[in-house]
Design a protein around this nucleic acid. Structure first.
Lengths: 147, 147
DNA sequence: GATGCAGGTTCCAATGATGGGAAGGTCAAG
DNA sequence: CTTGACCTTCCCATCATTGGAACCTGCATC
């Protein structure tokens, strides 16, 4: 099975399949005489596992751990659960940050006339947090890189 | 005022101040004879504006628009409001994605014994979405880059 | 004056996950 | 045999941010 087929069957782009191989997340694929990568159904299975984990927001590093456990028939489910719980905690932290941002902005938007006049509580708050009429505590935890 | 002072006063790292200047988000700073950048209180004011907007999750591109409006004394508050509303919509999209992920994972975690046995509904679901006992519809919208 | 340290300057590189594209080889159908 | 779809590798860009190297300046202390 060529990489394109594996890509379609797994939902992982060919680019990413090569990237995962290069970074060691997945083992090097077999090659045909032509030099083309050759994938088995079980490779596709693994790719779908990865795709699904990405869909659930796991980082590649976390997926690495999950894959190890997946392959380890003597794993302890507690180890998997721990990773998942840690990830949920991360998700919730991000969610809280985003909620805080949205709430603050929402309050400001509600106070903004949104007409042709220049007065704007949104800009006023950006200028001087809390100075605007209906401001709300600032988001404290910075959320770098796709907050 | 040196860049270090401006950094402390604004909460924007010196690195980022130079980066913002380089990319044209902020105008080129004045220079002293020594070649050191020289910041006025109004520069710091602008940096704090940027910092606050970043804290609210605005991208640099959006901040560029906000800064233009901020400087434009004849702006229309509707323009600001539109940017803010679009941003809120983005935030909410991300929040929904994250909530979906957390919910799915939460369900799986609840089904996982978390003991020393290998059976694990979390891995089972990653392997075959929906096959595990208490699974939940998969997150559909991919959330690339810090979802 | 000399020395040292804090802090400034520029430039280059890396992050994480992904997409884009160029230059060239392979395969199947026509 | 040609055509077009697909594969290969390699490099570059994204976005915001950090880190470090190599070098220069400002100020205080000996």
């Amino acid at each position: 099975m060529n990489i394109g087929q594996a890509s379609k069957a797994s939902g992982v782009s060919a680019k990413m399949i090569r990237y995962y191989e290069q970074t060691g997340l997945i083992p090097k694929a077999d090659r045909k005489d032509s030099g083309y990568r050759d994938y088995s159904p079980s490779d596709v299975h693994m790719l779908r596992f990865i795709r699904r984990a990405r869909d659930l927001g796991f980082s590649v590093a976390e997926i690495n751990d999950l894959l190890s456990l997946w392959r380890d028939k003597a794993r302890q489910s507690a180890d998997v659960k721990r990773i998942a719980q840690a990830h949920i905690a991360q998700l919730q932290e991000r969610i809280e940050n985003l909620n805080q941002m949205a709430a603050t902005l929402g309050t400001l938007v509600d106070c903004c006339a949104g007409d042709d006049r220049p007065d704007c509580p949104i800009l006023a708050d950006l200028e001087e947090p809390g100075a605007a009429p209906a401001s709300v505590p600032a988001a404290t935890g910075r959320l770098r890189h796709r907050p």
